[in-house]
Amino acid sequence: MKILVCISKTPDTTAKIAFDDNNTKFATAGVQWIINPYDEWYALVRAIELKEADPSTVIHLVNVGGSENDAIIRKALALGGDEAIRINKDATDPFDIATQIATVAKAGGYDLIFTGKETIDYNNGSIGGMVAELLDMPYIAHAIKFTLQGTTVTVEREIEGGEETDECQLPLVVSCQQGMAEARIPNMKGIMGARTKPLKVQEPAPVDTYTSISAFELPPAKAGVKLVSADTPEELVRLLHEEARVF
């Protein structure tokens, strides 16, 4: 079986969010970069578990970005995976990214494509569905459990207020979230091994522009907290009722 895991690079969860160039660019100075948590903890680790269960499984990683992304791609390879493909393009439009990934996916003939539920920077969560449509494959979003028997897949996915269990045949695309796997950290053997794993760089396919970001905006600062004494909690209830009018 061949699995493709989509890996995105995002700012660390504690990164300060600010913008440069008249609020048109994310300010990257001093920002630490990580593998998007959903891609790493759930998509990649679940793929690694599938390979541990069946060692003939081949895992490829794909990332769309410039050479500055190689560090996080190596980190992902240190966790597991046999080979990585980076499509050399600085892209933020989901249609662009999905088109590039679909091109790799078509050429590679994968049985299973994993993405994270969404990236923590642009919060679109649209790559999985777009790739599935470009490949004419079924798509299951927000998977919390994934099991495989032969070519039959059973997926539990989150729906409003509960879960649904679906059955489907390979090939398919799945977006992964909490529950799929337990986060791991790379071990020394993995880190050493990652250095010699292939990281192939591919030039992008031409693509139309569907959307572009014209500006960013920070939310207005809070006016400051109104503190109520711990001796009079009922005053808080009054304020919420009469002033904030939330109940």
């Binding site: 790559i127 569905g129 798509y139 979003a141 927000h142």
Partner: peptide
Amino acid sequence: NNSSAKAIAPRLSIRLKAGLVMG
């Protein structure tokens, strides 16, 4: 933006060649 739309909207974007804004 609920669980169904998260799966439908990206597909529909490709099908209709329509730019998509999530959220």
